[in-house]
Amino acid sequence: MTKSAEGFARIAREVFAPIYPVIAGQALAWSGIQEGFALDIGSGPGHLAVALAERSGLTVIALDADPAMARIARETAETSSVIPVTGDVHCMPIRDNTVSLIVSRGSIYFWEDRPKAFSEIERILQPGGVAFVGGSFGTPKLRKAIFTEMRRRNPNWDSDVARRSGRATPDLLRRELLESGVAHSRIREEEEGMWVEIKKGAISPRAR
């Protein structure tokens, strides 16, 4: 297991843990989806995937490009409803039209080709499915608490956040969504963070 994976898992467990149940609840409420397959892209140690599984009847795929993270996620996921998988968002090992709900918190800033990733997300969504990918901290109160603790642990925290946020501004994301060819999308901008929302409409009989 790599040091970076261990360090990320420790921060997720010690600092970010309170946001995962909140984000899972928001995604489930916004989408109205409770059954089928869900996907957590860039799942890391698997806390958000577990929160989704515990609050719904969904089977959740925890997808991360780092095999070390998949191993940590297996330890995190005490429920059989979470399936850790190693894979890349740009070419996901998932069939077309199979996933009802996709959630990804934080990984969007590190995707090398976001238009391609957005297209992949639309490909695997079921008709009527929805994806929320972004960088929310759950609530303004949780955002404040996390920033306070991360500033204590990392003097460069604010500049690190600013640098990451600059890689995925709402205007840039809108251009990349247009480039991707995704049919239905929008940006949800809130005090606690930002989400890209992608929906998949019904497939016409002619396209089947």
Rank of each mutant, 00 (worst) to 15 (best):
A73T: 00
R71H: 08
E149N: 12
R114P: 03
R206H: 12
R164G: 07
R114Y: 02
F118G: 06
P115G: 13
R74Y: 00
V60W: 01
A62W: 01
L178R: 14
I19S: 00
L173I: 09
A5N: 05
S81Q: 11
T139R: 06
A29Q: 09
A53L: 03
T2D: 14
S104I: 14
Y109D: 01
R188P: 00
G44V: 11
D66E: 10
T169H: 08
F118Q: 10
H47R: 08
R206I: 09
Q126V: 15
E197Q: 13
N154L: 12
R206W: 13
T169L: 02
R105K: 11
I198W: 01
A5P: 02
E189H: 05
V103D: 00
P93S: 12
P93N: 10
K199T: 15
V85A: 02
G44Y: 05
T59F: 02
L173W: 07
P115A: 11
W30Y: 11
P21Y: 00
V50W: 04
I94K: 07
I124P: 05
A202W: 13
A12M: 14
D171M: 10
M1T: 06
Y109F: 12
S107V: 15
T2S: 15
S100I: 15
A207I: 04
A53M: 04
A73S: 05
R151I: 05
V99K: 00
I146E: 01
A65K: 14
S104F: 07
E122G: 04
G25Q: 05
M194Q: 12
G46K: 11
R208P: 00
G46R: 08
G32Y: 05
R71A: 15
P127T: 11
D160H: 12
V130Q: 06
V161F: 05
K200T: 10
T86S: 04
G201C: 10
Q34G: 10
H47Y: 13
K116E: 08
A24V: 08
S4F: 13
P205H: 12
E54S: 09
K3I: 15
L48C: 03
E6F: 13
D88Q: 08
E120I: 09
W30R: 11
M92V: 07
R186T: 11
G128P: 03
I94F: 03
G57S: 09
A65N: 12
V60L: 00
P93K: 12
L28M: 02
N97K: 13
W30A: 13
G138E: 01
G201H: 14
D40R: 04
R167I: 09
S107D: 10
P21C: 04
F137M: 09
R175A: 13
P67E: 04
A51K: 06
A51W: 03
I83R: 02
L101D: 06
T139W: 01
D158R: 05
L58I: 13
D88K: 14
G166M: 04
W111R: 06
L142Q: 07
G25D: 09
G129R: 02
S159T: 13
I72K: 06
K3A: 15
F147M: 10
L172S: 12
L172Q: 11
R71K: 10
